[in-house]
Amino acid sequence: LGCCDTKNRKTPYRLENPEIIASETVFSVSEVEALYELYKKISSAVVDDGLINKEEFQLALFKTNKKESIFAERVFNLFDTKNNGVLDFGEFARALSIFHPDAPLNEKIDFSFRLYDLKQQGYIGREEVKHMMLATLAESGMNLSDEVIENIIDKTFEEADTKHDGRIDKDEWESLVLQHPSLLKNMTLQYLRDITTTFPSFVFYSQVED
């Protein structure tokens, strides 16, 4: 049909109807419009094409495009549900909706599980955990011996891997985060509650009446 052929897209990117996005997320129409103000800022940082590429995403996260992070890459890929290397506003808004304080807990648990399931095998393996630990330690300049790292992973799997198969599956992940709610701290962004006051200029472009 060619309706979604983004590679050959000739027309400029058109903003998805805010009312549709609002109906599928926890955001109100005004919040979607305010979020669009943030989106415009991020998406025009490098190439002003109305889409967020990986470089612009990293720039917004770290204020530098020099930094590489396996986590930023993973988050970007999870946001990029159309899997075409860029984030359109619909993808951006729908993904951030999961981070809203009012978003259902199961969505946060599911997203965080997929985040840590780096290899997308349907479970979190020991190697993935070690890889992520090493990345975090390198990022923070913290030094832990291999013995200590292995010890932490052992303890974590002793607690999380209740089926003792060397993997943390989705059910085990759910039990673990319910025991340790702090593991989901990153999954809630208080900023999203105040998005209309952070970006009040949305009212000038609003398509809807109150």
Binding site: L38, I42, A60, L61, F62, K63, S69, I70, F71, A72, V75, L96, F99, L115, Y116, V129, M132, M133, A135, T136, L137, E139, S140, V148, N151, I152, I153, K155, T156, E159, L176, H180, S182, L183, K185, N186, L189, Q190, Y191, T198
Partner: peptide, 26 residues
């Protein structure tokens, strides 16, 4: 020495790349 009690995911979740609040910083 103190026994290690930190969960691996607690440590990982401290990664800057997992802190999306930076997207909102001006």
């Amino acid at each position: 020495t103190k026994p290690v009690t930190m969960n691996a995911f607690e440590l990982i979740s401290r990664s800057q790349g997992l802190n999306l609040s930076n997207l909102f910083e001006k």
